[in-house]
Design a protein around this nucleic acid. Structure first.
Lengths: 294, 294
DNA sequence: CCTTTATGTAAGTTAGGCTAACATATGGAT
DNA sequence: ATCCATATGTTAGCCTAACTTACATAAAGG
């Protein structure tokens, strides 16, 4: 593209505004500048191009044939740019805030806490997508994912939000009378695992125990896994933060803990400045955590 | 059109140049600014829009999905403006200079004098259109008309070039022995008139003589009318400037003269700045007249 | 003929856009 | 692992493009 043939853009904009509105003063209003600025820009543009764009016979100016041709092109061009800007900024984007997280997190923490967010942001509609899948974040799609891991994720921004190790827990009555010294001692017990996830079987494998030799895996929806663990239906691997109260009350027993640098729940978003509902939600996530830590 | 949604144009241009060229430094070369200017404009545009347009992972930057959408719109918009500018400025317009005048003027004055213009402007091609019609002037069509009259003509610029009255003339031998006191005395004589024009019949009508009662009208091509008048083949109405020498030498006799304010040959052009070959021709017309007046 | 409206002009102000100089990070070659 | 080339980023300062203000000019309506 030969940019040298592009006229001065301030002049083109003034000219297009004049063509759009029909008058020098009205163009000034449209662009929020004085009519004198418009007048000067029009003269300057004509001088630059060496072409008469305007017919100045009479009190009001009109476009010449060349002026009409240029105005048409400029107006179309600017309209395209305005529309594209509106689309990418989501200036009129009223889509619900699209949040994704694992079902366990959604059930254990997010759903119970959402009313507190809605109390401060009643106009924000939310689309909560509990899924064990690692969902990609795309414009017009998912706005934010709350993911467990160590990050980072390619092409995304992430910020450690809730640092918490993974733990292996079981109900006291499930392990009563049993000597638990190693992972191998746990393979005779039933295991609960979130449907679609593999933290439990991953942990066993990492500790030398084949899934095939355990007493059995019961895969359940995320919202039922911790309730099942509390009821003594099986051993579970989960984020310590969700069972901290259970551990302290003795309702669950800590069997193992995996501490890794940076492991925890991350706020994962696409790069760049965020539309207002997303900004509000991220601010709330951070604040609510600070309040609960106090 | 809501101009408030149009991003800063310098930023949009830098961004479009980046998208077009693939790099910050190349965009600087394309716009003839430093890479630093591009970098700053890109940052500023993203801040203004509150959207990430660029993926900065790695050494070279790439467009995000939103950036690609905006770049597409911006590039199309600027391309339209560039193309329209090229069209109206005739930036690559090598059309011959299109001149129109009556055949009488063309034959009597313009053709004999053109070599003097070509001597000073050898690169200018000329399209000379001798026509008795009043031709409209349009972009891409006729550049200049040399017209007799008092002007002005609607929607056109005109400048009085050669002020000269209309005169009625005849050869001495044509009117020898005849008493010429009024127009009526001329109706027994033959009349020469330029094909497609009506100065002769107009003049007679204006002086109460019906065309039907004259001895006859001979319509000839413009280049032959004055030669015919000199040969005594008929009475002619013409611009005095063309027969001044004949009148002084006695080859033609002045029978009547119509003096009107501003009557003469006018340089008639379309409004606005003129492309260079036209400018050169207009300057030459004025200069040659000044030289001949001296 | 007077008043209103639309655009034009000139002088002065200001901030946007740029340059220059240097910094930082990435990636390839050794 | 280190060095060098390449690509982009940042900061301070300069300058002129773009604007404002104030007034001028011309056209058109009453």
């Amino acid at each position: 593209m030969d940019w040298r043939d592009l006229p001065p853009l301030a002049g083109l904009r003034a000219f297009a505004a004049f063509a759009d509105t029909g008058g020098v003063a009205q163009a000034g209003v449209a662009l929020d500048v004085s009519h004198a600025a418009i007048s000067q820009q029009l003269r300057s543009l004509e001088a630059h191009l060496g072409v008469s764009l305007l017919d100045r016979a009479g009190r009001t100016m009109h476009l010449t044939a060349e002026g009409d041709a240029l105005a048409h092109a400029a107006l179309q061009g600017f309209a395209q740019m305005i529309e594209a800007s509106r689309t990418i900024t989501g200036a009129n984007d009223t889509r619900p805030l699209h949040i994704t997280a694992t079902p366990t997190f959604a059930a254990s923490w997010l759903m119970p806490c959402l009313p507190r967010f809605r109390a401060i942001a009643p106009d924000v509609n939310i689309l909560l997508n509990p899924t064990p899948d690692t969902v990609t974040l795309e414009p017009g799609g998912v706005d934010i994912a709350i993911r467990y891991g160590t990050g980072p994720w390619a092409g995304l921004d992430n910020e450690l939000w809730l640092e918490s190790p993974m733990v292996v827990v079981g109900a006291p009555e499930l392990i009563a009378g049993k000597q638990i010294d190693s992972a191998d001692d746990l393979r005779h017990l039933p295991w609960l695992e979130e449907f679609g996830r593999s933290e439990g079987s991953d942990w066993l494998r990492e500790h030398g125990v084949s899934e095939a030799t355990t007493a059995g895996f019961i895969q359940v929806p995320g919202n039922l896994m911790l309730d099942g663990a509390r009821d003594g239906q099986g051993i579970a691997v989960t984020v310590r933060a969700f069972v901290e109260a259970d551990l302290q009350s003795g309702r669950l027993v800590l069997l193992a803990e995996e501490e890794r640098e940076g492991a925890g729940y991350h706020i994962v978003t696409r790069p760049g400045v965020q539309r207002p509902p997303l900004k509000a939600f991220v601010r709330w996530l951070k604040r609510i955590l600070a309040e609960e830590g106090a």
